[in-house]
Design a binder for these strands. Structure first.
Lengths: 215, 215
DNA sequence: GTTGTATGCAAGTAGACACTTGCTTCAGTG
DNA sequence: CACTGAAGCAAGTGTCTACTTGCATACAAC
C-alpha cells in the first residue's frame, strides 16, 4: 500500500517538521507568499523560528514543500467517481463534479494565492495544474467513451466541453465569496450545472425517446 | 480646446498624479499589494517617492484609487452588445462573450491579484464584483427576454445558466496561462462555448422546426 | 517683485524582513 | 556514564519598508 510519504515513528502532530508545513500552508492561504513571514509561520507552528531554517533551509523551500503537500493530498480524489463504462450519466457526472467542486472550494484560499503568485513562483504553476490533471483527464476519458458509443454527437469538441464544465465549477468555487447573490443555491448548484451540461452535450438517454436532433 | 471630459489643462501623460496611478496599477499587476512598494511605483512613474505621499497620503489610498480607475475603464463595455430584443441569438451572445472575455483576459494579472487580496483588502472585492455587474446583468436581461418569448424552457434556471457561461469565460481567461494545452484554440474557443451554451439552453431557433417540448 | 503652489532632493525614522551565530537544554542510545 | 542530535533561546546581521522632515527650485498669478 502506497502512502506517498515517509512516515516517521514520531508523533506526527508533534513533529516540528509537520507543524511547520501545516502552519506555512495556513499562513500562505491567509496572506500569500510575502505575507507568510517566517516569524508568523513559526509562531503559528509553536516552533522556534531558527528551527524553521534548520529544517528547511529557506522560506522558499518550506513554502514550496507546503503547497506541494497540500496539492498531493487532494489530487485525483474525484476521478474515481467516473466508471470505465458509463451507466447513469447524469448521476455519475454529478458525483464527480460534486467531489471536484468540493475539493476546490475547500482549498479556495490557497488556490487564489497560488494563482496570483504564478509569475513570481513558477513552481506553484506546476502544482496547480498537476492538482487538476487527473480529475480532468478522467472526465475527458469518460466523455470520450460516450462519444465512442454514439451517445453524444460525433462532431462534439470534447476539449470545449471539458473546459466548460471544469471552468463552471472552478468559477463557482472561487467566485461564490465575491458575488454571493448571483450564484445558484450552494446545495443544488452543481446538480443544476450538470443538468445543463448534459443537455449541452446533446446526450440521448437510452431509456428515453430517441430524440437525436440531426436527421 | 474642448475635450468633452474632465481633463485638467495639464498634459495628462506628464501629470504626476496620472503617472503614479498608472505605475501603481502596473506594479500591483506584477507583484500584488505587498510587492508593489512605494519606491518601485515612484521609479516606474519617474516621479519622486515623496510626491507619491504628498498626492495620495498613503500607499493604500494610491492603490485603491488605481484599481478603481482600472475597473471603471472596462466596466460595462460588453453589455452594449446585447440588444433589447433578441435577433440572431448565437451571434449576439457570441459578440457579448467575446468582448467580455477579452476584457477579462487583458486584465487577468490585476484580477488574479485582486482575488488573492480580497480578504485583506475588502475594497478590491467591491471593485471586482462591480466591474462585472453590468455585463452579467445585461446577459440576465437578455436571457429573461428569451424566456418570456418562450424560446427557452420555462423551467430553466437563468441564474444557473448565467453562472455557467460567465464562469466558463472567466475560467478560460484566468486559466489559459496555467494549463495551456487543455483549452480549445484561442481563436475559436469563445464561439464554441456559445454553441454549447445555446444548446444547453434548449434554444429553439425561430427558423427551424417548432420543437418546444412542453406546451 | 512677491507670494503661493507644486515638485525634486537628501536624509532620516522606526519597524519588519530573511537569515545567522553561539550557546544551552534535553531526550535517546551505546 | 558519555556521546549525539534535535530543538530552544537571545542576540545579532544587513536590507527593505512606509512614511516624514527640511530645504532648494521652478513657475505662474497678482
Amino acid at each position: 500500500m502506497e502512502t506517498g510519504s515517509i512516515v516517521t515513528d514520531k508523533d506526527v502532530a508533534g513533529d516540528p517538521r509537520f507543524r511547520l508545513l501545516h502552519a506555512a500552508l495556513g499562513a500562505f492561504a491567509e496572506s500569500g507568499y510575502r505575507g507568510a513571514t517566517t516569524r508568523r509561520i513559526a509562531e503559528m507552528a509553536e516552533v522556534n523560528e531558527v528551527t524553521l531554517f534548520r529544517l528547511f533551509g529557506s522560506k522558499k523551500a518550506l513554502l514550496e514543500q507546503a503547497v506541494e503537500l497540500s496539492q498531493s493530498s487532494t489530487a485525483g480524489v474525484a476521478d474515481a467517481y467516473l466508471p470505465e463504462e458509463p451507466g447513469d450519466v447524469e448521476a455519475e457526472l454529478g458525483a464527480w463534479a460534486r467531489v471536484h467542486w468540493k475539493a476546490m472550494r475547500e482549498r479556495r484560499a490557497v488556490i487564489r494565492k497560488m494563482m496570483s503568485e504564478l509569475e513570481e513562483h513558477p513552481h506553484m504553476n506546476a502544482c496547480l495544474s498537476d492538482g487538476w490533471k487527473k480529475s480532468h483527464a478522467a472526465l475527458d476519458r469518460y466523455l470520450n467513451r460516450l462519444k465512442e458509443r454514439g451517445d453524444i454527437a460525433r462532431d462534439m469538441s470534447l476539449a470545449t466541453a471539458v473546459a466548460m464544465l471544469t471552468g463552471t465549477l472552478f468559477a463557482d468555487a472561487m467566485g461564490r465569496d465575491i458575488k454571493k447573490h448571483t450564484f445558484p443555491a450552494e446545495r443544488t448548484a452543481v446538480a443544476e450545472y450538470i443538468a445543463l451540461f448534459v443537455r449541452a452535450l446533446g446526450y440521448a438517454r437510452p431509456a428515453a425517446l430517441d430524440a437525436r436532433a440531426t436527421h
